[in-house]
């Protein structure tokens, strides 16, 4: 039934399932293994043992770029914009450009790939507008503020048309006034049928936008369910809410 899902047995035998089309939060205290989990899912780290299933297929050992081509995108915890590319170029770099990014296509010249580029540029414009970043569209991404860089990275991932998007603390460092636009973007992604797994510390936000919550501590999954259920779970309270 589920079209896109990921099940994982890694870290300390942590195991969970992400429901297709839902927004799932991955929470837990620092050092719980959340970021490691992101890297394992997206192919950047190889688990010592265990498996990750995506679309029902084993993806351990798949390189990150292959997974990205299959719609599994991720963002990073630290800002990872392309600093010497402009904001617009960062976004365009995220978009698929099957004609212009091949060697033959590039050598055939502008006429060959311009239509595709125009379409991507229009998408970039719409996205920039929704995040109110049009005014910095032509600035070098490296010159932006920390929060703006995070937004660029999010937009870049959205440009890649993900089916399963792993966000590593998308709200960290974002200006409070902009938080709403990130939330709106995530909700828009969900209504487009994108599966989202996000690491997030702000439980208020988690409660508002996430359908399910996975709690990790010390490399293990200690709970998995809806936010209001978890609030009753003594183990979770002890590991997370307690202190």
């Amino acid at each position: 039934m589920s079209r896109a899902f990921a099940g994982i047995h890694a870290i300390n035998d942590a195991s969970f399932r992400v429901e297709a089309g839902a927004v799932t939060a991955l929470i837990g205290p620092n050092g719980a293994g959340k970021s490691t989990m992101c890297s394992v899912i997206s192919g950047f780290l190889r688990p010592d043992r265990g498996s990750v299933l995506y679309d029902g297929e084993e993806i351990v050992g798949c390189s990150p770029h292959r997974l990205a081509a299959r719609g599994l995108l991720r963002t990073f915890q630290t800002s990872s914009e392309f600093p010497r590319l402009t904001v617009t170029e960062n976004l365009l770099a995220g978009a698929r450009a099957d004609r212009g990014t091949t060697l033959i296509g590039a050598l055939l010249g502008r006429r060959y790939w311009i239509a595709e580029e125009r379409a991507n540029l229009e998408r970039a414009r719409v996205l920039l507008m929704s995040f109110e970043l049009l005014n910095v569209a032509d600035q070098m991404a490296g010159m932006l503020s920390g929060g703006q860089k995070r937004l660029v990275e999010l937009m870049r991932a959205i440009m890649a048309r993900p089916r399963f998007l792993v966000l590593d603390e998308p709200l960290a460092g974002i200006h409070p006034a902009t938080v709403e636009s990130v939330i709106a973007a995530i909700q828009r992604l969900r209504s487009d049928g994108v599966t989202v797994l996000m690491i997030e510390h702000n439980l208020g936000v988690v409660e508002r936008i996430c359908d399910r919550v996975i709690v990790m501590a010390n490399g293990s999954v200690i709970a998995n369910g809806r936010m209001h259920e978890l609030r009753q779970n003594p183990e979770v309270i002890d590991a997370y809410f307690g202190n």
Binding site: S63, A68, T75, S80, F82, P83, R84
Partner: peptide, 9 residues
């Protein structure tokens, strides 16, 4: 500019 980010895209 960022090898890992490019790979991730």
């Amino acid at each position: 500019d960022h090898e890992d980010a490019a790979e991730a895209l």
